[in-house]
Amino acid sequence: MTELSTERRMWSLFEPVHAITYFADDALGAFEEAGLRGFWRGYFAGRSAPLGAVPAGPVLAAFYGFAPRMVTRALPDVWTRITPAAALDARLDGARRVLRKVEGDLTEAASLLRAAAEAVDLHGRVLGAANATLPLPQDTAEDPAAVLWQAATTLREHRGDGHVAALLVEGLDGAESNVWRVALLDGAGREFYQPARGWTDEEWAAAIDRLRGRDWLDAEGRATGRAREAYTRVERTTDALAATPWRVLGTTATARCAELLHPIAAQTSRMLRHPNPIGLQPIS
């Protein structure tokens, strides 16, 4: 089994902390209490709120894998139901509700993760930079749950921005990136990923044809060697673009951060709805 890179390892630990805002019941309840009925209103409002009351275009660009109609259905309509400031409050309140039930040293974990998040590269990282500039308590101990979640979210969006750049270098559009992902899983999950990202059968089939034309899929729709080589390139580029926070934090502090995050992530991962579009599984 291939050993995970430091960047991938840390993502596997902070992503389950971030993802509670979308898939943990208490966090979803906070969006509903704020007036956003339905999962996707909360998702699009909560995730895009750091950008302000933007229309669909910037969100379509930043979120990347969604079909345009999926985004335009939510935006700008959600801003008639909630302000970005209220959406930010709702997502942080929901995260607090979840994390305050978690056992572990949230304060030290939050301090280390905050130090990593404060080192993210801002240039070209739209979602990462928007999250990095949100205010946090000066003293982490005042509200470690909020600091932990926001730091995880900043790092998650920073890595995601880099991943989008890697996909663009490979020439993959939103539909193709989803079809490619399913093919790499030997066809598993199309019935879940396709509707979750809003692509029609016709759009999915067209993306399959384009990838076949590049010799990324065979006649049966299976990933070819070229497709798997591209996956390796994308992951290496994504890791390289996500490396700065951990380089700045240093080897010893990063290892300590991972040690503290593991039991926290194990608990939050079990609170998530499964399956989920991120592909997260429970951590033992």
Score class of each variant (00 low, 15 high):
residue 177 S to E: 03
residue 26 D to Y: 00
residue 170 E to Q: 15
residue 272 L to N: 06
residue 280 L to H: 02
residue 206 A to C: 06
residue 125 R to T: 10
residue 89 D to Y: 01
residue 182 V to C: 10
residue 245 P to W: 03
residue 98 V to L: 09
residue 2 T to N: 11
residue 57 G to L: 14
residue 170 E to I: 01
residue 183 A to M: 01
residue 209 D to Y: 00
residue 164 V to R: 13
residue 147 V to W: 05
residue 262 H to G: 07
residue 143 D to C: 10
residue 201 D to K: 14
residue 144 P to G: 09
residue 201 D to S: 14
residue 65 G to A: 12
residue 128 G to Q: 05
residue 14 F to H: 15
residue 11 W to T: 05
residue 284 S to Q: 08
residue 220 E to N: 12
residue 144 P to C: 08
residue 184 L to K: 08
residue 33 E to L: 06
residue 41 R to E: 02
residue 82 I to A: 03
residue 90 A to I: 04
residue 209 D to N: 06
residue 284 S to H: 11
residue 20 I to F: 09
residue 32 E to M: 06
residue 62 A to R: 02
residue 2 T to R: 11
residue 284 S to P: 15
residue 240 A to K: 02
residue 270 R to L: 10
residue 233 R to G: 13
residue 201 D to P: 14
residue 79 W to I: 03
residue 98 V to I: 05
residue 7 E to T: 05
residue 253 A to K: 09
residue 186 D to F: 00
residue 190 R to S: 14
residue 115 A to Y: 05
residue 145 A to K: 05
residue 192 F to Q: 14
residue 256 R to I: 04
residue 48 S to T: 12
residue 22 Y to V: 04
residue 194 Q to G: 06
residue 251 T to F: 03
residue 51 L to Q: 07
residue 185 L to Q: 15
residue 203 E to A: 15
residue 5 S to L: 08
residue 239 D to F: 02
residue 156 R to C: 06
residue 270 R to T: 08
residue 115 A to V: 07
residue 216 W to S: 15
residue 59 V to Q: 02
residue 197 R to L: 13
residue 99 L to D: 12
residue 38 G to C: 05
residue 115 A to K: 12
residue 30 A to S: 12
residue 184 L to H: 05
residue 55 P to L: 07
residue 123 H to Y: 04
residue 271 M to T: 11
residue 14 F to K: 01
residue 227 A to F: 00
residue 46 G to S: 05
residue 93 D to F: 00
residue 217 L to V: 04
residue 260 L to T: 05
residue 270 R to P: 01
residue 275 P to F: 11
residue 45 A to D: 10
residue 277 P to K: 04
residue 235 E to H: 12
residue 255 A to N: 13
residue 230 A to E: 00
